[in-house]
Design a protein around this nucleic acid. Sequence first.
DNA 1: ATGGCTAGCCCGGCTAGA
Length: 265
Amino acid sequence: MNKTEYSGLKKIVSWNVNSVNARLPHLLDYLRTEQPDILCLQELKCMTEKYPKADIEALGYGSQVFGQKAYNGVAILSKSPLELVSENFEDNAADVSARFIACRQNDVVFMCAYVPNGQSLGSEKFLFKLDWLHRMRKYLEAKFSPRDKIVLVGDFNIAPDDRDVYDPVGWKEHIHCSAQERESLSLVTRFGFIDTFRIHNQKNGQFSWWDYRDGSFLENRGLRIDLIFATPSMALKCKGSRIAFEQRSKERPSDHAPVESFFDI
DNA sequence: ATGGCTAGCCCGGCTAGA
């Protein structure tokens, strides 16, 4: 999908910025030139007080921010008002990580998720990751219906299938690609979500993350782990999706590129 | 092969990411 095809459509974006303050020049440049309607950020890596609110407001964007010291942190940005729905899953879990925020704008709920990395199969962090996704499913069931208009985006830290992995044989049953993780992701999506990137595009080799090391981006050795899901009523309105690779070519980039889906709403 | 980058933390080597 090229830029002329999406004029007039609402642009909804997911971007793991790997520190909002380290990435501030790129973020402001992206807001100025790309004018997203909804921008969901993950890995702010700062407390809410340290979020660069004023610089972002100067470009006309408001933010709903759920920050945390050093790690994690998520935010949703828009030029139109966003009403906070929830931070994390409101399930009284002994989980202090700031990884989920949901906001409403008109009749659509936007959810921004930073799914735990999981480190390695069978580790404590791996079990936390699977449990986190199960908690997300429970949250969805408790508060929403698949008939609602919901756009759920984020860094899922799971490549949905082998087309989303540069070396599926080498990554088989490795973290981000294991059957257990894919099953837990499927548990969430079976609530009623469609992967909007795949509505109009079935090709392999299209990635949203590339390791900083070893020239991975130049060789396109990456994974598609940043995903934009929508419930059917919203997915019907999705006209296309693209990955903003150009952001990954910049100097001192995030290791993730923004993923953009375009909606006729 | 468990490293190869990068960012935050509290001020140089650790943790964590994916």
